[in-house]
Amino acid sequence: MTNTPASIKLGGTGVRASTGAALVGALIVWVALLGPLVTLLAHVTPASVWKALGQPGALQPLVTSVTASLVALAVILLLGTPLAYLMARGRLPLPRVWEAGVILPLLTPPLVIGLLLIFMVGPATPIGNALSHLNLTASDTFFALVVAEIYEAVPFYVLGAMAAFAAVDPALEQAGALLGDSPWRTWRRVTIPLAAPGLANALAVTWARAMGAFGAVLIIAYHPFGLPMQIWVTLQESGLASALPFALVLLVVALPVPIAAYIWSARARRRI
């Protein structure tokens, strides 16, 4: 009995120490990760942003990036969601092969992806030839930009969605089926709502990745200029100071969606 108060006290001290360490750690992470952002804000004035964006056609790269990312996101969502579900439930034959296929674009440097895409879907390839019959060209076109963004971003969505689906107890899907639901209805009423917070996070990361896609884009979709390409070209032609306003615009457009998704999914998880 005499040891009990001491143990409690020791335990309490331990908790306080670890909380303190966590705060210091969090501070270091915040300073390290937000440092560049603060630097950006320190070097950009409202006047410079206004001047950069006020030039004729200055907003076109932003429109191109947002549109291409939305199309890429729609394609990824449409194809990646069922794929992630089937992979999470182990319903695909040769599961390791599928996993490797999804992870590979993540492990491949984006520039290399761009080079390889030229050899796969470029105008001189059989696929490129087939695309030309559909009036599509996967080189220096909006379509090429979407393709490059999909390749750079798709693993982030599929892996995130897989984790979200795997966290849904299959017994709940069985309960839905036992209560008379078709597999599709169970998926809509049980699986998707329960996986939604994880799916939202995965989608948010994918959006940020698609908006910021650069390596593969540089190789196969130099034109039309998206925002990352605009930053790169401005940097090359006019220097760092001229590129910074566009960098700020990219952050302002790309970040709110992930932040909102993160906040929503955290709240949704608490409800569940």
Binding site: D169, A171, L172, Q174, A175, G176, L178, V190, P193, L194, R271, I272
Partner: peptide, 13 residues
């Protein structure tokens, strides 16, 4: 055929 299990399997959402 209905099935009632030990785990209630309630939909948490």
């Amino acid at each position: 055929v209905g099935l009632l299990r030990q785990n209630p399997g309630l939909f948490p959402h």
